[in-house]
Amino acid sequence: MSPAPRASRPSGDRRPLPRGVRVLLGVLGPLLLLGGWQAYVRLADVDEILLPAPTTVLTALHDDRHLLWHAFQRTAQEILLGLAIALVVGALLAMTMHLSRVVRALLGPLVIGTQAIPLPVLAPVLVFWLGFGLAPKLAIVAIICFFPVTIATLDALERVDPELPRLLRTMGASRLQLLRWVELPAALPAALSGAKVSVAIAGIAAIFAEYAGYEQGEGGLGGVIQTAQLNTARAFAAVAILAVFAVVTTGALAVLQRLAAPWAHSGRRG
């Protein structure tokens, strides 16, 4: 294991750490946690049905790899498709609310209200409506995830410099042209930021959806957790996969954001 980097900079220096150091620290954090966890389970002689040691989870990851891989594919599909739906619906919703004050007044309270619905209430209703297939899972993930996207997008649209629409009007721009040249580009990085916030809760939503609409053999990681019973290590293995997947998805979204909206990420000068 590498030593921690020396603190050679004055405090309050907000320059980003070098990439290598950042990655190293990102790995070091979880490793420290796992080390402490391992020591605690071993030294305190904890019952592994309650809390398995990381090495036991690792063994489960290996032993159940076929089952877990199959389940992961299903859950990943639910998370990614659900997020994609949330991104599109959330951004479109924000656009519509931005363009029409009537729609905004009509849907504003409703949008916030949806976030107060507890999943255990929502999930069975959706399963009842949409059946046990993929559809209710995607609906649940999307309902939970669109909110940060809508709020971030709406916020970005509100923050568009009011002078810009005026300037474009002197050029003879139509409402549609204003949307294409000013509002859509302003909203894009914000919508992706919102989706980044949604990634972690997307995993929770997907697991819950799988609990509520459990299908034999197609229950995803939620199904694995639900049916693990006394095999706690297997449930933890499923959780570990979810956590890693959340980190990777967030990273991928950050990369997408850089590619799609490079202007939002460079430092200013002059």
Binding site: E163, L167, M171, A173, V182, A186, A264
Partner: peptide, 26 residues
């Protein structure tokens, strides 16, 4: 054609596309 006090260039367009903007809109 208006030139405002603050440049009001679109941050997502490069210099060339900013100059071309009124033409595109026309």
């Amino acid at each position: 054609a208006l030139m405002p006090q603050r440049d009001l260039l679109l941050p997502w367009l490069d210099a060339r596309d900013n100059v071309a903007l009124p033409l595109r809109i026309a």
